[in-house]
């Protein structure tokens, strides 16, 4: 199914994110210490790092799901105190509500005219005609697309993705990459993608940050042309090697 045809571009723009001197511990475990990171509006940032390195913790701080022990997390120049209405998250699991149909899941917030916007968002992610299915009949990739549509209906200015494609097969994953890149290019929201997969980071991001032992071990620009080819670009391979060395 072609995802490209259904897409209608609409730019919502992004908001800048800034973390300064952020500390976060769980008991005796110091996950982030004196952590600084500035993400300009509209940037596509990928965060890679070992398991348990604090990537999800970082994302939860930005989302306002958890608070920092000290330091500041700012979105659009304002301190994050609770959930920010223009920040949307995609989790590793799709987290669809099993007893709501696909369209009701996408329009979970039931905003004005939600059915129409939900239908359009589903078309954006290539799921036209599946509006009235139950989530349990969808494949893993389709579920993540519903979750993506749900995140997109509210026209977020920041999209946080915590390994959303980790459980998908390689082909579906590439399909999701193309989809995400296309929507991001059109809308220009600030994107933070957390991933284990260095190739995924290089294929999608403007900039890759390696998180190691609660600090940034590497911070590089990925200045490759878009739309990107998934394979065989020697510059991409070189970048992947540099990132892997830092992880």
């Amino acid at each position: 199914m072609s995802v490209a045809d259904a897409y209608e571009p609409e730019s919502t723009g992004g908001l800048p994110i800034s973390l300064s001197r952020v500390e976060k511990s769980f008991g005796a475990l110091n996950v982030l210490g004196n952590f600084n990171l500035d993400i300009p509006a509209g940037q596509f940032l990928a965060v890679v790092g070992r398991s348990g390195g604090g990537k999800s913790t970082l994302m939860r701080l930005v989302a306002g799901l958890d608070g920092a022990d000290s330091g500041r997390v700012n979105i659009g120049g304002r301190k994050v105190e609770r959930l920010h209405p223009s920040v949307r998250l995609l989790f590793q699991e799709a987290r669809l509500v099993p007893w709501q149909r696909v369209i009701e899941n996408v329009g979970i917030a039931r905003g004005p005219n939600w059915q129409e916007t939900a239908r359009r968002a589903l078309a954006d992610v290539g799921l036209e005609g599946r509006e009235n299915d139950w989530p349990s009949v969808l494949s893993g990739g389709q579920r993540q697309r519903v979750a993506l549509a749900r995140a997109l209906v509210s026209e977020p200015q920041i999209l946080l993705l915590d390994e959303p494609f980790g459980a998908l097969d390689a082909l579906t994953r590439i399909e999701m990459h193309r989809l995400l890149e296309r929507i991001w290019t059109a809308r220009g929201f600030t994107t933070v993608l957390i991933t284990h997969d260095v190739a995924e980071a290089v294929a999608l991001a403007d900039r890759v940050v390696v998180l190691r032992e609660g600090a940034i071990a590497l911070d590089i620009e990925i200045a490759l042309d878009r739309p990107r080819q998934e394979l065989a670009d020697p510059r991409a391979v070189d970048l992947q090697r540099r990132i892997l060395d830092a992880v």
Binding site: A63, L65, L83, P85, R88, L89, F91, E93, R95, V97, I108, A109, R110, R150, S154
Partner: peptide, 16 residues
Amino acid sequence: PQLVEMASVYGLDRKA
């Protein structure tokens, strides 16, 4: 609890 967290991210109030 993951669903409840998701619902709060999407701004559902207590009644919803």
